[in-house]
Write a protein that binds this DNA or RNA. Structure first.
Length: 818
RNA sequence: GCCGUGGUGGCGGAAUCGGUAUACGCGACAGACUUAAAAUCUGUUGAGGGCAACUUCGUGAGGGUUCGAGUCCCUCCCACGGCACCA
């Protein structure tokens, strides 16, 4: 009688599985495909944490299940290896990021393999590998040549004391994370991707490219994620209206979604960046004061802006503008509560119906004029809902919705404005003044200007002769071997672009590379893409709800537009794993010292126990507190399962479980119910309830001394995706030579899961008074007859009149009395 | 403020179609085994009342629909996550 010793069996099978190449995705296979993907991890120095294990276990169970169901499964893993932590570590220690990354990947790989995950490692990718980032650069050039990558001045975080650009993550709270000084905004030339081109649907050569908004309706993603993306894109429909300014032809164009409130407009506000300020110049009588205000705003940090609770602004003296609807002349202000980067950079202020304008008007004693009253009659100081128009000329009395349409038509007819859609989403700033990323493949030549690196010269390699000590300049600027180059067009001395790409660029296409990771001619061949893409199931953290997922969708849509892929959405089904919290319900963090290290758990309880425990904690998507004591329950379950195969007499029965006499009463029924439940639960990612059901089966089966061998075998098969090592060991112990993972997933027998006897609930006025055991399929008449004969029921009916009987077949009978 | 998700025993959670609320697991209590402990096994474990059979209450709060509500509708409270001067 062998003992369950995970320390021996887990490494043993991990080695054997590797030798057998069980998890290789086949490029040419008649089987249907499933592409099951984890978000590739950043190989951090602190190693794998229990959150990784949660996500990877879920996809591993699903992948193993799908292989047993007969699918050709692609389940790869790789490394999102570029990024700040490795570079910061290099600055501190002088150890090159290539080295730390290599070490971290080694550790991660070892940890991942110790958990028995079924990755096809022959597909591994590493975004910091030149063979990979060659294609990141190639895609950049593809975008560049098609007008999707461009350069323009943009605000970046700048630390005056370190004389350097900071990434947003390094400027949190408006403070430099190196020296603690305030971060200011500085205008510098930056690279952008034109993601905004893909917000709405477009038709290219008769091909419909669904936009980032509409594409969401075709994918199976959590509602919260779809909502967050829509929110981020921030589509808003409204009107652009011209307010004329005497002596200044362009006038002031404002954007509003509430044209119905325009009769309440008492002034107009422009952003400090508005071109009108410079163009009007001396026409503004207090131009000095205005310029001082604008300069002060520019110096303001994000922190100041966040802290500034009070609105501020300056009137443009001598300037008036005219409301096209009523011809009223109103003042113009400059104020930094209006953003230069949204809409037209100018708004019509309606203090009676907009809280920001209200606040500003109160501070500067500006007129507050009501033009909407509530339908409900309730009146507040500042009423921002729709209602009924008052004091609005010919539109008085109309509802807000009606008025908006009529006023739009009026504007269009009189050429004073037009319908306009605005978005919060901006183009994607992809350049980083950083070392540890993919270099942007552009050369600057005095004669030829901006020159893309010729494809044959890719990849543009990261130089190694760099010093990481902070000097105030990008490390790439200081590398002579890198920076100085010959112009590929005219041959004179030129300079390379020293910026690298945002790591999100690298992760926007990695799922395509797994299809054909060794290809050195293309980022992936058309046949490989057709074979594997799109991704069927994608699992990862909810922190990527917006950025990564939006960027990856943008890449896919751009590639579809260029005819390089024939699908529109990269991830058909998406799920997020919930955060695993510390035992006290707070976030795990290094500083608090409450981080659970999976290595320790594997050492103490085994990989199978850790896997099942993490799946059993609760629904995959929920945040759940860790509780080491809870693993004991899983170990008990595994020990019991072990005993089923090793301590019971296993009877051979040819006819199959259910038709034989050797099965304990009720066991075949429970087995088939369990198969059904586990199958359905895996399909729906409800691993916690699948495990409960297997526990119920094991608890029941443990009561008997002898069990039919086929029943135990079927059970091991459904257990195998969860506890692969134990299932494989037991499978071989009871005499099977071929791996359990090459078997077929068991089917349940529908006839067996139907109970012959059911418990029928008897209710009086909806309250349970008795349950009776009856034959399944009993008729209402028969059920009622039995129910009324019950001793416990009789007293409830005394002196009562039966008004109604509700019968739910095989479930309940409810007698309504008065 | 806006958007989203959720609130069920001492704890993690189950009930996904409106039909026995608390499956499964942890913990706790009692018992068996043991010199003892651990491990294991068995039983009990929502709250109140009753010797008992039983019975009343009970899924964040309050209302409603229904023969019947954790589940549907309305009003509200709280927690978590995202966005946030986006006109």
């Amino acid at each position: 009688m062998s003992k369950y010793d995970f320390k021996i069996i887990e490494p043993k099978w991990q080695k054997k599985w590797e030798e057998q190449e069980l998890y290789k995705a086949e490029d040419n296979s008649p089987k249907p495909k499933k592409y099951i993907l984890d978000m590739f991890p950043y190989p951090s120095g602190s190693g794998l944490h229990v959150g990784h294990v949660e996500s990877y276990t879920a996809t591993d169970i699903y992948s193993r299940f799908m292989r047993l169901k007969g699918y050709n499964v692609l389940h790869p893993q790789g490394w999102d290896a570029f990024g700040l932590p490795a570079e910061n570590y290099a600055i501190k220690t002088g150890i090159h990021p290539t080295e730390t990354t290599k070490e971290a990947i080694k550790t991660f790989t070892k940890q991942i393999n110790s958990l028995g995950f079924s990755y096809d490692w022959s597909r591994e990718v590493n975004s910091s590998d030149p063979a990979y980032y060659k294609w990141t650069q190639w895609l950049f050039l593809l975008f560049y040549k098609n007008g999707l990558a461009y350069k323009k001045k943009a605000k970046v975080n700048w630390c005056e004391s370190c004389q350097t650009v900071l990434a947003n993550e390094q400027a949190e709270g408006g403070v430099c994370d190196r020296c603690g000084n305030k971060v200011i905004q500085k205008d510098l030339e930056q690279w952008f991707f034109k993601i905004t081109d893909f917000i709405e649907d477009q038709v290219v050569d008769n091909n419909e490219v669904k936009g980032l908004l509409n594409g969401l309706s075709s994918v199976d993603w959590p509602d919260s994620t779809k909502a967050a993306q829509k929110n981020w894109i921030g589509r808003s429909e409204g009107s652009e209206i011209k307010f004329s300014v005497g002596g200044y032809e362009p006038g002031i164009k404002v954007f509003t979604t509430r044209v119905d409130t325009i009769f309440g407009c008492t002034y107009v506000v422009v952003a400090p960046e508005h071109p009108l300020l410079k163009e009007l110049g001396k026409a503004i009588k207090n131009i000095d004061e205005v310029e001082a205000y604008v300069a002060a705003t520019k110096k303001k940090t994000d922190l100041d802006r966040m802290e500034a609770k009070e609105k501020s602004g300056v009137e443009l003296k001598g300037i008036k503008t005219v409301n096209p609807f009523n011809g009223n002349s109103v003042s113009v202000y400059v104020a930094d509560y209006v953003l230069g980067s949204y809409g037209t950079g100018a708004v019509m202020a309606v203090p009676a119906h907009d809280e920001r304008d209200f606040e500003f008007a109160k501070k500067y004693n500006l007129q507050i004029k009501e033009s909407i009253i509530s339908n409900k009659g309730s009146k507040t100081e500042c009423y921002t809902d729709d209602g009924q128009l008052v004091d609005s000329g010919e539109f008085t009395g109309k509802s807000s919705a009606e008025a908006r349409e009529l006023m739009m038509q009026w504007l269009e007819k009189n050429l004073q404005g037009s319908r306009k859609v605005n978005y919060k989403l901006r183009d994607w700033l992809i350049s980083r003044q950083r070392y540890w990323g993919a270099p942007i493949p552009i050369i600057y030549c005095e004669k030829c200007g901006e020159v893309p690196v010729p494809e044959k010269d890719l990849p543009v390699l990261l130089p190694t002769d760099v010093d990481f000590k902070p000097t105030g300049e990008s490390p790439l600027m200081l590398s002579k071997t890198f920076h100085e180059v010959i112009c590929p067009v005219c041959g004179i001395k030129a300079k390379r672009e020293s910026d690298t790409m945002d790591t999100f660029v690298c992760s926007s296409w990695y799922y395509l590379r797994y299809a054909d990771n060794l290809n050195d001619q293309e980022f992936a061949s058309q046949s490989a893409l057709k074979q594997w893409l799109p991704v069927d199931v994608y699992l990862g953290g909810a922190e990527h709800t917006v950025l990564h997922l939006l960027y990856a969708r943008f890449f896919t849509k751009a590639l579809q537009k260029f005819g390089l892929v024939d699908f529109n959405e990269p991830f058909l089904k998406l799920r997020h794993q919930g955060t695993i919290l510390a035992e006290d319900g707070t976030k795990m963090s290094k500083s608090k010292g409450n981080v659970v290290n999976p290595d320790v758990i594997v050492e103490q309880y085994g990989a199978d126990a850790l896997r099942i425990y993490e799946m059993f904690m609760g629904p995959l998507e929920d945040a759940k507190p860790w509780n080491t004591k809870g693993i004991v329950g899983i170990t008990r379950f595994l020990e019991k399962a072990w005993k089923l195969a090793t301590e019971k007499t296993l009877t051979d029965c040819e006819v199959g479980v259910g038709q034989c006499n050797c099965a304990p009463v009720g066991l075949p029924q429970l087995l088939h119910k369990t198969i059904k439940k586990v199958t359905e639960d895996i399909e729906e990612f409800r691993f916690n309830t699948a495990i409960s059901q297997m526990m119920i089966f094991v608890n029941f089966a443990s009561k008997f001394d002898s069990l039919p061998k086929p029943a135990v075998e079927k059970f091991l098969k459904i257990l195998s995706p969860f506890a692969p090592h134990m299932a494989e060991e037991l499978w071989s112990l009871i005499g099977n030579n071929e791996s359990i993972f090459l078997q077929k997933w068991p089917e349940y027998n529908g006839a067996l899961i139907r109970d012959e006897l059911v418990n029928l609930v008897v209710q009086i006025n909806g309250k349970v008074r008795e349950t009776i055991e009856v034959e399944a399929g009993i008729t209402e008449e028969a059920a009622q007859k039995i129910a009324l004969e019950q001793e416990k029921i009789k007293p409830w009916l005394e002196n009562k009149e039966i008004i109604k009987v509700i019968f739910v077949p095989d479930k309940l009978i409810n007698i309504v009395v008065k």
